[in-house]
Computed example of a mutant assay.
Amino acid sequence: IRVYKVAAVTSNYVYLISSFGLYTVNISDLNSPFYVQRIPGKRYGGVVVDNYAYTVDADGNLQIFDISDPANPTWVANSIYVSYILDAKISSNYLYLSTGDLLVLDITDPASPILEGSYTTPGTTGDIFISKGYVFSANGNTVGIYKFTASSVEQENQDLENAPRASSLEQNYPNPFNSFTVIRYQLLGRQLNHVTVKLYNLKGEEVITLIKGEQSAGSYQVIWDGKNESGEEMSSGIYLCILKVNNWQTSKKLIFLR
């Protein structure tokens, strides 16, 4: 098999991520390791925490498996949409995920993680390291330094009074597109948030409002069919999708090809 990542190593097992699944290999005898089982399906990263495996399936869903019996893993739940996992670290009861951006999950109940914080990094977040309460991340050409507090991730030396109350807005898929595209996002915390998802052209003119209202924490998606509020098909070009949550907002560029 082609191994992309070693998800975890315990006293008797090593867990391997590949394009064919999450493999468990018994290494109790290092001279004679042997294959135990495989959680099938293409995997885009993963991490093992105690008796649970968190791995991303081909649709970008963070799936949770109980591996207390390594030979017979059982599916527990699907959690948030994360696309892929590049790196993962654990500190106290929090799981820090590098997914291109930085996500923080509360895993006090490992079978039911809660998205507690996120930060849209200036580049694509790769390896992460945690020390003295700070998260250090490789962001392409820069190194990011972040501090996590309950329900927010703050970048050092930056005023984030209105810290992100939603995870980073995912890049729409497909992109470019010519008929429809799916826009996914997540909300944080345990309170209701006022949420809008709007599309604008590059002149700053509003094209359509896709979402407007109160939403609680969780994962959401909305489809745009390339039409404006009046149902008229827009011309080919680049459009800006803006997710606004309370007083915080983020955006992604969408490419529409007729």
Rank of each mutant, 00 (worst) to 15 (best):
I90F: 05
R43Y: 05
D109R: 00
F34G: 10
D66R: 11
S19F: 07
L62A: 09
G45W: 03
R43C: 10
D59F: 11
Y81G: 09
K89S: 13
P122T: 13
I114E: 15
S131N: 08
I80W: 10
L97P: 10
I90T: 14
D29L: 08
S19V: 14
T74D: 01
I107D: 10
G41C: 10
A77Y: 03
L105H: 02
Q63A: 12
D106P: 06
A111F: 04
I130Y: 03
N61F: 14
V56E: 03
L95R: 13
A77S: 04
Y81D: 03
A77P: 00
A111C: 00
T55M: 13
Y13H: 12
P122Q: 01
S32E: 15
R38I: 03
I80A: 14
V49E: 12
E116N: 13
Y81Q: 02
Y35L: 14
V49D: 07
S32R: 14
V25A: 01
V104F: 01
A77H: 05
A88H: 05
E116L: 13
L62S: 11
K42V: 09
N78F: 04
L62H: 04
D109I: 03
I85F: 02
K42R: 12
I114M: 13
I17V: 13
V25I: 04
V48P: 01
I130Q: 08
A77Q: 06
N26T: 08
V14I: 15
G21V: 11
N61W: 11
N61G: 08
V82R: 00
L86S: 11
F34E: 11
G45Q: 00
V76P: 01
V48S: 01
I90L: 14
D66F: 07
Y81R: 08
L62I: 07
Q63I: 08
S32H: 09
S91H: 09
T124Y: 15
P40E: 05
V56L: 02
V76C: 00
F20G: 09
G45P: 07
G123K: 06
D66Q: 14
A58W: 06
I107M: 08
Y52K: 15
I39Q: 00
V25T: 06
Q37N: 15
L95Y: 10
V104L: 04
S28F: 07
I90A: 01
F65W: 15
L95M: 14
G41H: 05
V56P: 00
I114K: 15
I80C: 13
G45H: 06
L97S: 00
I85N: 04
L102A: 10
A77C: 07
S28V: 07
R43N: 09
I130L: 15
R38H: 07
D69Y: 02
I128Q: 02
G21H: 05
K89C: 05
L115C: 10
D59C: 06
P40R: 02
K42Q: 08
I80Q: 14
Y84F: 13
G100K: 04
G100Y: 08
I130W: 05
N78K: 14
V49S: 07
G21D: 07
I107H: 14
V14Q: 12
T108Y: 05
F129V: 12
I128A: 00
D87H: 05
D29Q: 04
G45D: 02
G123S: 12
A58D: 15
G100H: 06
S28I: 06
E116A: 15
T74W: 01
V49A: 10
I85R: 08
